[in-house]
Design a protein around this nucleic acid. Structure first.
Lengths: 211, 211
DNA sequence: CTTTAATCGATAAATATATATCGTTATAAA
DNA sequence: TTTATAACGATATATATTTATCGATTAAAG
C-alpha cells in the first residue's frame, strides 16, 4: 500500500468539517467539487485525497456523505475517543483543557498536571489538576497513551522523559524545545511561530508588491 | 528573485530559537550543521534555507551568529514590533493574550474585543478587553493591521467582515471557518486539528507495524 | 609550510506533491 | 430513448521540495 502524504492527512480534518456542516443541512451526498469549493482547493486534489481512503463514489453524484465521514474519521483513528493527559497548566494549558473542539477529534483530556500549589487539587474547566508527582502512577493506572506538553521550554525535556517513562506513546509538543525521545515515541510539534511566520512574510510581500 | 518556499519560511523561527539559545551560551559563530543537529534536520537543508537570506558564511566556520539572527529576523519582518488586536476572549483567546512568546515574534497584542459583559472593561493578562462595538474606531485610530480571530465558527465570517472593513490586512484565523476575504487580505489559518491528525495517524501506524 | 578536515555555495538528481488529461459511468433533460 | 453533463478513477505531466554531489575555501594540526 502506498503511503498517504502528510499534506493529505492534514487536509482530512478540514474535509470532516465541511462534511459535518453539510450533514446538518440535510445533504446526503457530497462531491469532491463541493468540498473543494467550500475550502478553496481544487476538486482534483480533494478527489485524490479521498481516494486514499478507498471509498467508492458515483459519477455525477459524488460520495455518500455518511460513509465518507466514516472512512475519514476511521482513517484518522478518531472513531473511538483517545484519552490524553496534559502537563503544564498555564495560560495555554488551561485553554486547551477547556477547548470543546477536541471532542470532534476523538481526543479526551482526562486531567492536567502541574507543580503550582495554587491550582493542584482544583478543577479547571471541569478537569482535575493533579501534582506532577502523581503523574507516572496515574498514567499507568489509566493506560493513557497521549500526552500534551504545555510547559515552558526549560522543563520540557524533563517532563518528556517522565512521560516516556510512564508509558506515553505520543506527545503533542506545544513548547519550543526540540525533544529527544526513543524511536518508538511519536512527537508532534505544534508550532505557532511557523504559521505566524507565514502570515508575516505574506503580509510584507503584499505590501511590497501592491504598494 | 526566486520565491522562498513556504516550508523554508516555517523553519526560520526554529532556527531563530536555536540561534538565541546558543547566543546565550556565548557562541559567536554557528554552522548549518550545528543548527541541523539541534533540530534533527539535514545540514544541507538548513544551508539551503539560510542561503535564501543572502548571508555569506565562511567555510570551516559557519555564519556569524549575530548577523544570522539579524537576517532571519529581518526576513520575517520581526525586527519591529507589529501591533495586533484579538477578537474572541474565550479560553483560547485569553491564553493568547497572555502568551509571552509572541514578543520574540515581533507581535504585540494591544487589546482584546468581545461582547461578553462580564469581561468587557476588565483586563486579562494585563490587556484591556473592549466591546466589539468599539472595534472599528479603535483599529482605525491605532492603525492596527493584524487581527487574531478566536471567536467560534458561527460568528467567524461576520467578525472577519468587520475586520476587513476596519482596515485589518492580515488575519490569523484560529476558528475552523473557511473565511471569505477580498484579494488583498491575507488569512493564515491555524489548524490544531491538522497537527493532531498527523499525531493520530503516526501513532496508529506505529502500533500497527511494531506490534 | 603542507596537509587534513569541516563547511560553504552552486549545481544536479531524486523524491514528493499538485495539477491536468482522458475514458467511463450515472443521472437528468431533451 | 437519446443526448448532454457532472463527476468518478486512473494515469500522466508538471511543479515543488528535499537530498546528494562536487569543487573551493578556510582554519587548525602536523
Amino acid at each position: 500500500m502506498k503511503p498517504v502524504p502528510y499534506p493529505t492527512i492534514q487536509r482530512f480534518p478540514l474535509y470532516l468539517e465541511v462534511i459535518k456542516q453539510l450533514q446538518l443541512a440535510g445533504i446526503k451526498t457530497i462531491s469532491a467539487t463541493d468540498i473543494a469549493q467550500n475550502l478553496g482547493f481544487t476538486n482534483i486534489q480533494v478527489r485524490k485525497d479521498i481516494g486514499y481512503t478507498g471509498i467508492i463514489g458515483k459519477p455525477k453524484i459524488g460520495y455518500n456523505i455518511k460513509e465518507l465521514e466514516k472512512v475519514i474519521t476511521s482513517f484518522l483513528g478518531w472513531q473511538n475517543t483517545n484519552d490524553a493527559i496534559l502537563v503544564g497548566v498555564g495560560a495555554l494549558g488551561s485553554a486547551l483543557l477547556g477547548y470543546k473542539g477536541f471532542e470532534d477529534y476523538g481526543l479526551n483530556i482526562i486531567s492536567g498536571f502541574d507543580v503550582n500549589k495554587k491550582i493542584v487539587g482544583k478543577k479547571i474547566h471541569g478537569k482535575k489538576i493533579l501534582h506532577i508527582d502523581d503523574f507516572e502512577s496515574q498514567v499507568k493506572l489509566l493506560k493513557v497513551s497521549i500526552g500534551i506538553l504545555t510547559v515552558n521550554q526549560s522543563s520540557a525535556q524533563q517532563i518528556t522523559d517522565l512521560m516516556v517513562k510512564a508509558g506515553i506513546k505520543g506527545i503533542w509538543n506545544f513548547s519550543s524545545e526540540n525533544l529527544k525521545v526513543p524511536d518508538d515515541i511519536v512527537v508532534q510539534r505544534e508550532n505557532l511561530s511557523a504559521s505566524l511566520a507565514l502570515l508575516s512574510v505574506k503580509l510584507s510581500h503584499k505590501f511590497k508588491t501592491k504598494q
